[in-house]
């Protein structure tokens, strides 16, 4: 049975301006899982993370980290947490080794050169240990932030948009690192805009928008919902209505009858595309272009959520 390591109950945040960034969120994260929190910009992802980490004070609710109240027993709770923020906020004048060692001590642990070395080697930073942070590339700075978060051996690691603005190679490296950390028993909570990232890493996915946690699903379940794709056929001759005999594909006419749209599930074994194309050929319906597309993850979620709300 899954063992909870983080539990939020009725957590909300209303700023002095009157803006409510988070509406009574209930969420339980299990030990050792990778949880992806998805949502558009301004959805409340960072606010949620910031509240758990102690950077933002919640207006209501309670947070339990490893059984410790994050507000009353904040020291015990925070020692269990590592945070990699979205912004590249790291002291530029320090060396890599100094800033990572600083983070370990700040979280209450004594010096452990072997552990710090291992963290830096895992992140390919060991050769840069004596370099000042300002001398590093953006991707390297992000690795330094991860190293700082791992310096005190946290049980829970928050990654706020960890691969925003990093190249493909580094993104793959980070995915590998996340899997490696999970293998060691670290619980990972990440926010991301990339469907590949959630698909590659997450066990469960939560969707947040407008400060409300709208759904929490197993990845496999969600992927089925997210597996919808669109195929647009640009017709040679525009149509006014869908011809008879094509009902089973639930087609739609778009762009003043110039485009025939088919929505299909890419995860299904039979997408229905070959049979549709054959049926069109049999009816003599010609098209001059074919394009398949998928919505961004956020678009899909917003649509999904909108559909539920309706």
């Amino acid at each position: 049975m899954a063992e909870p390591i983080l539990a939020l109950s009725g957590v909300s945040k209303t700023y002095k301006s009157g803006t409510t960034a988070l509406h009574s969120v209930d969420l339980t994260i299990n030990k050792g899982e990778i949880f992806a929190l998805l949502g558009p910009n301004g959805a409340g992802k960072t606010t949620l993370i910031s509240i758990v980490c102690g950077i933002v004070t919640p207006s209501t609710g309670s947070i339990s980290v490893g059984g410790h109240d994050a507000l009353r027993a904040f020291k015990r709770a925070r020692r269990m947490i590592g945070l990699v923020p979205q912004e590249l906020s790291v002291d530029m004048f320090e060396t890599v080794l100094a800033t990572v060692s600083y983070s370990r001590r700040l979280f209450g642990y004594g010096a452990d050169p072997q552990h710090v070395e291992q963290v830096l080697r895992d992140l390919s930073l060991w050769d840069k240990r004596d370099a000042k942070v300002m001398e590093l590339s953006g991707g390297m700075k992000r690795r330094v932030l991860i190293a700082k978060a791992l310096a005190h051996e946290p049980d829970i690691l928050f990654l706020d948009e960890p691969t925003a603005g990093v190249d493909v190679a580094l993104r793959r490296d980070m995915w590998k690192l996340v899997h490696k950390l999970r293998a060691r028993g670290v619980t990972i909570i990440l926010t991301t805009h990339y469907i590949e990232e959630a698909e590659e890493m997450a066990d469960r996915v939560g969707v947040i928008t407008g400060g409300k946690l709208l759904l929490v699903e197993e990845k496999a379940t969600l992927m089925r919902k997210l597996g919808k794709r669109e195929m647009d056929l640009t017709l040679v001759e525009p149509m006014t209505q869908i011809p008879a005999g094509l009902e089973r594909w639930h087609l739609a006419l778009e762009n003043e009858g110039k485009t025939l749209r088919y929505v299909f599930d890419a995860t299904e074994e039979h997408t229905g595309i070959p049979s549709l194309l054959r049926a069109l050929a049999e009816q003599g319906i010609a098209f001059k272009d074919l394009e398949t597309s998928k919505s961004s993850l956020e678009d899909i979620f917003v649509d999904l959520v909108g559909g539920r709300a309706a």
Binding site: C53, G54, I55, F74, K75, R76, A77, R78, R79, I81, L83, P85, E87, S89, V90, D91, M92, S103, L106, F107, G108, K148
Partner: peptide
Amino acid sequence: TGTVFELLSAPI
């Protein structure tokens, strides 16, 4: 610089 996040999130 924004590094205050680390101080605020530390068990201190």
